[in-house]
């Protein structure tokens, strides 16, 4: 394998700097000791992180996001595991259509989904409720949970299950003792990826959230629409820190390349 020349490395360096710059600048500004947007030059201060506590909207929105993310990804996984097992191992009529339907939220612009859910929930009278938000998030993160579970179930050696059956395992024992443990890494990664998707979603949620059910991205977005000050940078920095932690854990647990491979390709 040939190695990269100096030109390639210069390109690479600039590329990486540009990719990181916006994220770094947010994190740096968050530590400014000043009352306005500025890069901290002489000293770092946590005053804007402390200031978050004085804005209950942000704190509340954070808890909403966390609860919504955890719950919607959990529900999505509960729906996705049996569906993934069925799609992975049975060749039945309508299977491809079903798989396409389940992955379709990846293809539909989130703005359209937001509008559709807003219209639907208003019509059936649960507009602005947490329940509506939850159901919407379950549908949107479902493809992520499904894909990773599907990959795990497809990659599994079916004769392992046959072996368990031949040794006398019934359906439920088979699932609990053999199938689930084997697909568990995929299921957990699917859950984690679904959580991050839910936690980060703005475009769809902005249509559905009301002051009581605003998620953190929605709150941040609405805040930025009015004015940009160091407070929103410290909130962003906290979000980045949380995501990074989740990422590192995910990488250790499952391998980030495999997770991201599941995120690619909304087109198919």
């Amino acid at each position: 394998m040939r190695t990269n020349g100096p030109l390639a490395l210069i390109f690479h360096t600039i590329f990486v700097v540009v990719m990181l710059a916006p994220i770094l600048v947010v994190c740096l500004v968050a530590f400014t000791p000043e009352g306005y947007l500025s890069l901290p030059t002489t000293s770092f201060s946590l005053r804007w992180f402390r200031a978050i506590a004085n804005y209950p909207e942000f704190v509340h929105a954070f808890w909403v996001s966390l609860g919504l993310g955890a719950l919607s990804s959990l529900v999505a996984v509960l729906f996705a595991v049996p569906a993934a097992l069925a799609i992975a191992r049975y060749s039945f009529r309508g299977r491809d259509t079903l798989a396409a339907l389940f992955l379709s939220p990846l293809m539909i612009p989130h703005v359209v989904l937001g509008i559709a859910f807003l219209r639907f929930f208003t019509a059936i009278g649960i507009g602005g409720s947490f329940a509506g938000l939850l159901v919407a998030h379950v549908v949107v993160v479902f493809p992520f949970a499904l894909r990773l579970t599907l990959a795990a179930a497809t990659g599994m050696d079916r004769s392992i299950e046959m072996a368990a059956v031949s040794l006398g395992a019934g359906d439920w024992t088979l699932f609990r003792r053999v199938t689930l443990p084997l697909i568990l890494p995929g299921v957990i990664s699917g859950w984690a990826l679904a959580f991050i998707q839910s936690f980060d979603d703005l475009t769809m949620t902005v249509f559905l959230a009301t002051p009581g059910t605003e998620t953190l991205p929605v709150r941040m977005f609405l805040y930025i629409q009015d004015n940009i000050d160091p407070l929103v940078t410290s909130v962003s920095a906290s979000v980045i820190a949380i995501t990074m932690t989740a990422l590192i854990l995910l990488d250790r647990f499952y391998g980030l390349d495999r997770v991201l491979a599941g995120k690619n390709d909304p087109g198919r």
Binding site: I160, M162, S166, L167, A169, G170, R177, L182
Partner: peptide, 28 residues
């Protein structure tokens, strides 16, 4: 199939990767 009481050895061995040798053997 679960009630036939036949022993099967598969081409891929089909061992339960999350169980030890003893746990594999004890499963049946």
């Amino acid at each position: 199939p679960a009630k036939r009481g036949l022993g099967i050895v598969f081409q891929s061995y089909a061992l339960f990767p999350h169980m030890t040798a003893a746990e594999n053997v004890a499963f049946g």
